[in-house]
Amino acid sequence: MTSSIARPASRFRLSYDSGSAIFLVAPAVLVLGLVAVYPIGYSFYNSLFDLNLARPHRVPFVWFDNYAKLFHDPQFWIAVRRTTVYTLVTVIGTALLALGVALFLNEAFRGRRILAALLLVPWATPSIVNGLMWKWIYDPTYGLLNGLLLTLGIIEKYQVWLGDPNLTIFLIAQAAIWKQMPLAAILLLVTMKSIPDDLYRAAKVDGATVLQRFWHITLPALKPGFMLVFVYETMISIRHFDLFAIMTQGGPGDASFTISWQIYIESFRSLKFGMGSALSFVLALATLILSYLFIRLLSRKL
């Protein structure tokens, strides 16, 4: 039954939905294009050159030489080690502490609302202030940590905390954990609250202990929350720069020499922008791969 009605001439007429979508998405995409995509592209372009601002007139094109050089650079591998340790400690520490806090705040008791509101204080603290705060606490001459431990009799004399290469990474990680734990805790707490009560009741009837209920009900239900926490925390911890800049500047020696710091050194101290850009892309690639792995790993188990 063909009908003789007017048809729009073009078969590829843009539908109303698609047209609207383009208008709605355009502003964000354009801004990001200018201040994110273009710089990223330009940065990648830089990484293919032996670009050294100390000699700005000679900029040979070197393909992926910078990247190759990196893998032979012992300093790079030190940075990789430091970054890995730092990220692992930070992410796992944040997750564990967040879990504890979430379990704690999940209980019903008076004053819980106030404590939950105060939970956001570390999250709201600017990272620079976070850095200077802990630096002040760790201070070798006047710091609170020294004073406290001395008074408690745990140490005999004041330590130079940040100056101890074995401790540096962990101390900085501690500052990062302090600031990032609240967000993770909130995520886990909200997920916890959505676990139906009936599961716990059934388990109690079946005779499960508190620990068993936690292991078999709470933890599995928190998987999506943990996944989000792990991915997000990894993405930001791997790139941390502010704390290192304020607290230790990569030192002592190379105790806190992370990839981010190496990028800074190469780009702004050695002025080798090509190398710095290459490093950045290695870091970005690592971030993407890790995020992808996490998502696959945890969603398969679900």
Partner: peptide
């Protein structure tokens, strides 16, 4: 939702693309 193929008419007016 938008149809994939075919036509939809209200009172003999094609409305496929009308939101």
């Amino acid at each position: 939702e938008e149809l994939t193929e075919g036509d939809l008419l209200f009172d003999d007016t094609l409305v496929n693309f009308v939101p």
